[in-house]
Amino acid sequence: MSVVLQGLAAAQGDAVAHFAGKLRFETDPSDVAADIRAGVTGWVLIDSRSQESWDQGHVPGAIHLPTREIAERAAAVVPAGTPVVTYCWGPGCNGGTRAALEFAKLGYPVKEMIGGMEYWTREGLPVETAEGITRRASDPLTAPTGIACAC
């Protein structure tokens, strides 16, 4: 018996609803980077990590707002109704999810950047520190040189 097919695949309508729903709640580093490069405005990127993590490197243009401070400071940092994208360390961390929940509780439209800072860096995207903006080598399994996933 197939391990993959142990559970029946969802019916078409259920599958469409599920995957469309995921895309309403998630974005990825490539899409965030594309919007930043294109100068797209109308949304805010929030880094919900600690000060020490932020100092090690963050997405250029992101706003530092640790999760524990969102309820108190969000209104002063992000205009009401502005779409928010949150991120934390990476897929092994649910900090971006917790930050997204805090913004959702405050009534903000919100998405989480899946992969977080880990995948941002692994894709070789720019990282900002106090010393300036740098690019680290991309992980060839995440962003092979000269090849784009073109998704």
Rank of each mutant, 00 (worst) to 15 (best):
residue 113 M to W: 01
residue 76 A to E: 14
residue 60 P to D: 08
residue 40 V to H: 10
residue 68 R to L: 04
residue 62 A to D: 02
residue 40 V to F: 09
residue 100 A to L: 09
residue 149 C to H: 13
residue 70 I to D: 03
residue 26 E to V: 12
residue 2 S to R: 14
residue 30 S to M: 09
residue 10 A to F: 02
residue 82 T to G: 05
residue 119 Y to R: 15
residue 21 G to I: 05
residue 77 V to S: 05
residue 98 R to P: 12
residue 7 G to Y: 10
residue 117 M to N: 07
residue 71 A to W: 09
residue 69 E to F: 12
residue 119 Y to Q: 13
residue 19 F to G: 02
residue 54 W to S: 04
residue 149 C to P: 06
residue 142 T to W: 07
residue 30 S to Q: 07
residue 140 P to L: 01
residue 118 E to H: 15
residue 30 S to C: 06
residue 2 S to V: 02
residue 88 C to M: 07
residue 24 R to N: 09
residue 85 V to P: 00
residue 67 T to L: 08
residue 92 G to F: 07
residue 142 T to S: 13
residue 23 L to E: 11
residue 31 D to A: 08
residue 6 Q to F: 04
residue 39 G to H: 09
residue 80 A to M: 10
residue 9 A to F: 03
residue 143 A to K: 08
residue 2 S to L: 06
residue 94 N to A: 11
residue 84 V to A: 01
residue 12 Q to S: 01
residue 21 G to T: 05
residue 103 F to M: 03
residue 26 E to P: 11
residue 123 E to N: 14
residue 39 G to L: 11
residue 33 A to K: 11
residue 143 A to E: 07
residue 122 R to C: 08
residue 58 H to P: 09
residue 120 W to N: 04
residue 21 G to M: 08
residue 56 Q to F: 15
residue 118 E to Y: 14
residue 148 A to Y: 10
residue 56 Q to Y: 14
residue 29 P to M: 06
residue 123 E to S: 13
residue 66 P to R: 02
residue 95 G to D: 11
